[in-house]
Design a protein around this nucleic acid. Structure first.
Length: 739
DNA sequence: AGCACGCCGACT
DNA sequence: GTCGGCGTGCTC
């Protein structure tokens, strides 16, 4: 006998949850869990698929994280439709899951980064107009002119543009199309990158480069999967070496893709050119500045594997690579890899895990590796290849310190006599000088001489920086801009607003006053906001059209100045004064990066560093040219204090409009902090800038041993705390800015 | 993140 | 009397 009673046919479903597949969908919202939807009958869905799902009154795009077969779907809303986008690869999803747990951010917020460029819309096309060969029944002056404009070759432009080019109305073009004289076809605006030519001859490598490459190959041959540090002094040719290593990877797997990360947008172009020269084809570029169409195209070409070499800023880590087999972190020590607003993450550290998840090689390149990376090499977690020789060099420059206590510059001047003399001699000899001062604008502070008022951005604690060339006062944190007023906004006194302290513009003024006949220029993000103007300035230096260049930290980022023989670091104390953990390390790195640019084959370079702390270990070590000694001292110090890379740190950041509410929340947060004997919770404390954009800020600093799961601790803490909607709470694992 | 719902000031 | 300000809370 057959029992039919439990067949769904005989259940009317009114009192039973209906059965269907259930899709767990991650939506790009700050929500910690996937949302569940019913998979409608007939829809085929799998993990990684992009879908549209109803959310309240609207439809949103999301990614299927998993499918539960024959699950009770009750009254779940159904998935609206599957989108025609390449599914998010398994490795990407595992990476996002891991990242969400590690940086203590909701999975939805992490996935949002990975959806930039994920669109089902077809890629944009451009119309191409060409003559069919047919002649119009009636010719007119306007028609002849339009046809003349098309005579040469097919033209990639819109009908309106063609009309404009021919100096007539769009109706004329329209008429010729209707008459069959002009045909319209469409071509994609963004084409896939050309395949790299892996067999073309590379540059001949110098012996030091050859040795480094051999070591990298040996490491690969023995199946080593650890990240590899390419540690080479400025000018040693690290780029050629990692390009050869990438070529190996691309050659041994025809589907392999490689990613080169650079610290900031301005450096992508330089590297794009190097890659294009080496492989005869332009790689794919990815950074936050590319437009929506290019972004969609890039997403597609990365997902379908047609982009084999990608050069990008940190967000390229979230692209849906189909077969990622190697990642390079160029200038791995660079602080720009750390994002500390919104989602806080360190792209270098994430890249190590991203590489592990897709079985890719990882190369870190730097002339001044971070202490974190050095420590990882010593622990045996990373391998290291050292390149010491500079290409055609006369060795490292001679470094001397100028004691500003003994040689103070005149009032409202910033160049000491010894530095002025050195510039003078260098200029007289026809050589180039670089003055480094990491401060944009004219003066970092504007103060009223009548009442002492300090100009600040509205609702913020940060000072307004005077930019005299543009006549503006600018807040470098919020971007707030105003004209410099004539009268003090506090006491109305006129012409009493006084610039305090130096910026590159003010230094430029001083240099021009002292060397009126020298050719000078400023190199900062204000004078070189885009790749084109960066190249222009670098080119002018190369052609020796500039005698004295005054630059911010932008000059320390990989640009080569072959004729430079003198570098002056105007204020080495600047970075040291901040009092943050990496101040000494960063000072040493910048000094090495900047001074490393001095000197050429026939003439050794000199570096003069102005400081009021000549005994500071970082500076003293630089002067002795004993970098190893400095690294040892700094590592010993970090170890003694349990600081990174010998301990772990996290920040719990709070911000809100009403100070009393914020104080109440942080008081409560302090009370509910989890207890763990090996963990130290410090705070709540006020950050350096206590108010920003009208938001008060407070924070806790947490320190734990290396083997402690600090992410889990912070997640538990966050979960135990009820935060009102008017207060924002954010976690920053491995913070860089906590002064 | 959006988008609704909800309570308090200046207007057709 | 309403229109609308943005604080609070929810979305499978």
């Amino acid at each position: 006998m057959v029992d039919l009673s439990n067949l769904s046919l005989f259940n009317d479903g009114a009192d039973t949850a209906s059965l269907a597949d259930r899709a767990r969908v991650v939506l790009p919202l700050p929500v910690a869990e996937p949302f569940d939807y019913a998979v409608p009958a007939g829809m085929v869905l799998g993990a990684g698929d992009h879908v549209m799902v109803p959310l309240g009154p609207r439809l949103v795009q999301g990614v299927v994280w998993g499918i539960e077969k024959s699950a009770a779907v009750g009254n779940l809303k159904p998935v609206e439709r599957r989108l025609d986008i390449a599914p998010l690869p398994d490795a990407s999803r595992r990476f996002f899951d891991w990242m969400s747990a590690y940086i203590c951010a909701p999975i939805g917020q992490v996935v949002r980064l990975g959806l930039r460029g994920a669109s089902p819309d077809p890629l944009p096309q451009t119309s191409v107009l060409h003559l069919t060969g047919r002649l119009p029944d009636r010719a007119s002056a306007a028609r002849t002119s339009v046809m003349g404009a098309l005579r040469e070759s097919p033209v990639k432009c819109s009908q309106a543009d063609l009309a404009k080019a021919a100096g007539c109305s769009p109706g004329v073009v329209r008429g010729l199309i209707d008459a069959g004289v002009i045909a319209v076809s469409f071509r994609p605006v963004f084409t896939p990158p050309e395949a790299p030519d892996l067999l073309r001859d590379g540059l001949s490598l110098r012996p030091a480069q050859r040795e480094a490459l051999d070591a990298i190959r040996a490491h690969a041959m023995e199946g080593g999967s650890e990240p590899l540090l390419i540690n080479g002094v400025t000018g040693s040719g690290k780029t050629e070496v990692f390009l050869e290593a990438l070529r190996d990877v691309l050659l041994c797997d025809e589907r392999a893709q490689v990613l080169i990360l650079v610290p900031e947008i301005a450096l992508t172009d330089a590297l794009l050119n190097r890659v294009t020269e080496r492989f005869g084809a332009a790689p794919l570029a990815w950074h936050s500045g590319i437009g929506p169409g290019a972004r969609r195209a890039a997403f597609q070409f990365v997902a379908d594997g047609r982009a084999r070499i990608v050069v990008g800023a940190r967000s390229a880590l979230f692209l849906p690579f189909a077969h990622l087999k190697a990642i390079v972190i160029d200038e791995e020590h660079d602080g720009s890899y750390k994002q500390d607003e919104g989602l806080c993450y360190h792209a270098r550290d994430l890249a190590v895990v991203r590489a592990k998840h897709c079985d890719a090689r990882l190369y870190l390149a730097s002339a001044t590796p971070s202490l974190e990376t050095i420590a990882n090499v010593r622990r045996g977690r990373y391998r290291e290849v050292v390149m010491s020789a500079r290409a055609g060099s006369a060795g490292m420059p001679e470094v001397s310190l100028i004691n500003l206590v003994q040689e103070p510059p005149e009032r409202d001047h910033w160049l000491s006599q010894p530095l002025v003399r050195a510039i003078c001699e260098n200029w007289a000899a026809g050589d180039q000088t670089l003055l480094y001062l990491n401060r944009r604008g004219y003066a970092p502070l504007v103060i009223c001489r009548a009442c002492g008022h300090r100009m600040k951005a509205p609702d913020s604690d940060s000072w307004l920086v005077e930019h005299r060339y543009s006549g503006m006062l600018i807040c470098h944190r919020t971007g707030f801009t105003m004209r410099k007023p004539k009268a003090c906004p506090k006491c109305q006194a006129e012409d009493k607003l006084h610039a305090v302290g130096p910026g590159v513009e003010r230094l430029h003024e001083e240099v021009r006053a002292r060397f009126p006949d020298a050719r000078t220029a400023i190199f900062s993000s204000d004078t070189a906001p885009d790749a084109e103007r960066v190249l222009h300035l670098v080119g002018a230096m190369e052609r020796r059209e500039i005698d004295i260049l005054i630059g911010t930290q932008i000059v320390a980022k990989g640009h080569n100045f072959p004729h430079l023989t003198l570098v002056g670091v105007v204020d080495a104390d600047l970075a040291l004064r901040g009092g943050d953990l990496r101040a000494a390390e960063r000072t040493a790195q910048v000094a090495i990066q900047v001074t490393g640019r001095a000197g050429r084959a026939d003439k050794p370079g000199r570096a003069l560093i102005q400081t009021s702390m000549p005994d500071h270990p970082a500076l003293a070590a630089l002067a002795r040219r004993d970098l190893a000694g400095f690294v040892e001292a700094e590592l010993a110090d970090r170890e003694a204090t349990g600081m990174p890379p010998f301990g772990r740190l996290a920040l719990f950041n709070f911000s809100g409009r009403q100070l009393p509410v914020l104080e109440e929340v942080t008081r409560l947060a302090g009370r509910v902090a989890p207890q763990a004997v090996r963990v130290e919770v410090l705070g709540p404390s006020d950050p350096h800038i206590a108010v920003l954009r009208g938001q008060w800020r407070k924070r806790f600093l947490v320190r734990a041993p290396l083997d402690f799961d600090l992410s889990a601790f912070m997640r538990d803490w966050r979960a135990a705390l009820k935060v009102p909607a008017s207060v924002r709470a954010g976690i920053d694992i491995d913070p860089y800015n906590f002064a």
